[in-house]
Design a protein around this nucleic acid. Sequence first.
DNA 1: GTGAAAGCGCTAACAG
DNA 2: CTGTTAGCGCTTTCAC
Lengths: 345, 345
Amino acid sequence: MSDKKRSRVTLEQVAKHAGVSRATASLVVRGSPNISKETRKKVLQAMKELGYVYDRVAANLRSQRSSTVGLIITELDNPFFSELLVGVHEALDQEGYTVILGTTFDRPEKQDALLSTMLEHRVGGVIMSPVPGCSAEMLEQLRQWDIPVVLFARDELPAGQFDYIGIDNMAGGRMAVEHLLEGGHRRIAFIGGSPQSSVWKARRSGYSEALRAAGIEMDDTLLVPSATTRQGGRMAVKRLLQHPNPPTALFCYNDVVAFGAMLGLKEEGIVPGRDIAVVGFDNIQESALFQPPLTTVAAFPEKIGAYAAKQLHERMRGDASAPKRTILQPELVIRQSSGKREEKR
Amino acid sequence: MSDKKRSRVTLEQVAKHAGVSRATASLVVRGSPNISKETRKKVLQAMKELGYVYDRVAANLRSQRSSTVGLIITELDNPFFSELLVGVHEALDQEGYTVILGTTFDRPEKQDALLSTMLEHRVGGVIMSPVPGCSAEMLEQLRQWDIPVVLFARDELPAGQFDYIGIDNMAGGRMAVEHLLEGGHRRIAFIGGSPQSSVWKARRSGYSEALRAAGIEMDDTLLVPSATTRQGGRMAVKRLLQHPNPPTALFCYNDVVAFGAMLGLKEEGIVPGRDIAVVGFDNIQESALFQPPLTTVAAFPEKIGAYAAKQLHERMRGDASAPKRTILQPELVIRQSSGKREEKR
DNA sequence: GTGAAAGCGCTAACAG
DNA sequence: CTGTTAGCGCTTTCAC
C-alpha cells in the first residue's frame, strides 16, 4: 500500500478555471453532445492548462459501474497460457476495459484470494481459467454477487453455471490417436497431465474411444500421468521405457509434455519420429520449430481468449441469457514427430 | 464499460447490524488494535452474516492511497518477457499490490494510452519496459504527477530520470563474442534486433569491443538487423548466406532470433553447432531444449522482475532518494550450438 | 474505546 | 444548455 498522498487536479478546479459548473465540466469530460462548442472548448482548454487527469475510480464509485475486469490465469510459463493471455488481453483492451491480472499457480487458495481481491476492487466481470478444486463458497459468493464470470480453457467448475469457452478436448484426443493408428501403431501410451483435471479426462476419453473403435484393448499401464512440464514429460517417458512391452507411440497431454518426452527419448538414444511416434496437444509456437517438428492438435489459444473476452463483454452489457458453452473444434497438425513425412504448414 | 448497477453490502449496514457506528466497523475491518474484543467479534459476525465485501476502491479514494500498480510490458510472445512478467507479478503480489496489466506491442501511442489509463485508475506506481520513442509529454506528465516509475529490461527513456533495473548488455555481448573468438572464429556476424533500441546498441557495443580487442576489423556487412522474432532471425540468416564472404559464427540479438536463425540454417542444409557457431542472448527456458542446445548469455528475466518490484515497493513507501540503476551481471551458458562439446548445466 | 460529521472526486437528478 | 443539490462507500478528524 502506497503511503503517498497525492494532490490531484479536480474537476471542480477545472470548472472554476473555465468559469463553468462542475456538472458542466463533467459533461464535457464524458463527451456529452449537449454542450455548446464554446463551453467545451473553454473546459478542454482549462483541463490542458491544469494538467487534469480524469479520476475513473471516483467516477466508477459514483456511477456504480466498472471499467475493469479481472483476468485469472493458472500459470504463465506454459506458452499455451501466455498465448491465451495475449488473446484475452488484447480483446478486452479493445473493448476499453482495464485488466487486473492474477495468477493462481494452480493453487485453489490463491484463486480464492484473487477473486476476493478482485471483488474488493470492483471489477465488473471476471475471466478465468479455473483451478481444479475451486472452493464451493467462493462460487456461491460469485453467484450471489452476480458478477459475470466467463471460464476458459478448463471447465473445472460445475458445468452449466457459468459461460465457458474451450475446445473439444475429447475430439482432439480422438484425432491424435486416430492419426497414430493410421500410422500402424497399436500400442499407444497417453502420457503427462493430471488425472484430476477435466481436460485430462476429456483427452483421455478421446484416446480411449479411438482405441476402442479400432478394436484395441485398453492397457492402463500405458497411462502415465505426470506434472504438466517438460520435466514431467521426461520422467514419464523414462518410466515408460522400463515397461516390459513398451509402446510404439506416445500421445502427450500437451506440447510441453511432448517436448520433455522427446528430450527424454533422445537421452536414451531413441529418435522421436523414427523409432517412436509422438503427438502433442495445443500447437504452441515452438512445436513447429522443435526437432523433430511436433505433430500436434491445434487448440487455438488466442482464439479462445478472444472469444472469452467477447462473451464477457456481452454479459457486462446486460446479456442475461442462460450460460453458454462455446466449444471450438481442434485441428490435427501433422509434422515429423509422428513419423509421417507429410508436412502441413 | 459495464452497465450493471450492483448493490453492495456497505459498512454502514454492517455497523447497524452489529449495533455500532460506521467508524467503529471501519476500524475493525482494518484490524485496528484499539477495539475491544467483544465489539470486534460482533462486527466480524455481522460482516459474515451479511456477506460484506470490503470496497477497496472507495477506501482508496477517501484515504488518497493506492493499492494498485501498473505493469506495462512490450510483448508477451517472447518468452523472455513472459518470464519477466512472472517475476514482477509474483513479487508485487506478495507485497499485496493488485496489478493492472498493459501491453504496448512496442507502439509508443499504445504506451501513452496505457499510462493515461493507469493514471486514471489511480495506480500508486508503474513498472514498465519502455518502448523506443516514448513521448516527451508523457514523461513530463509522469514526473509532474510524481508517481514512482521503475523501468526494467530496457532503458529507452532519458537516463537518470527513473529507476532502472536491467542487465549489462554490453558485457553480455562481449562475453558472447569472446566465447566465439576462443572457438577460433574470426568472421562473426551480429544478427537480429532493431538498431534503434538501446538494448541492441549495448549488445552491439560489446560485440564491437570484443572484436576490436582481438584486433579484428569491423565489417558492417556482418551486421544484419531484423524483426525480433524467429521469422526475423530466419530471414537475416538467409540474407547473410548470400554474402560473398560469409561468417563462421553468429551472435544473435536474442534467443528467439537465434532459434529462427538455426531454423534457417537447417533449411539450407547447414548444421548449427558443427558448420557454424550460434550464440543467443537471454537464456529463456527453451534454449536448453532446442536442437542443438543453444549457447547463450543468461539475462535472468525473473530476477530482473523481482528486483523491479522490490524497487517500486520502496519508492511507494516513500523512498525519495535519487534514481537508481541496478545492473545485473549476465552469465555465459555454453551449450552445443557454439560448437563446444562442454555442456554447462 | 466509540460515535458524529465532514469530505475524497465524481455523476445523477432535477431545476432553470 | 447550464447550475444546484445530494450522495457513491469509505476514512478521518475530533469529540465524548
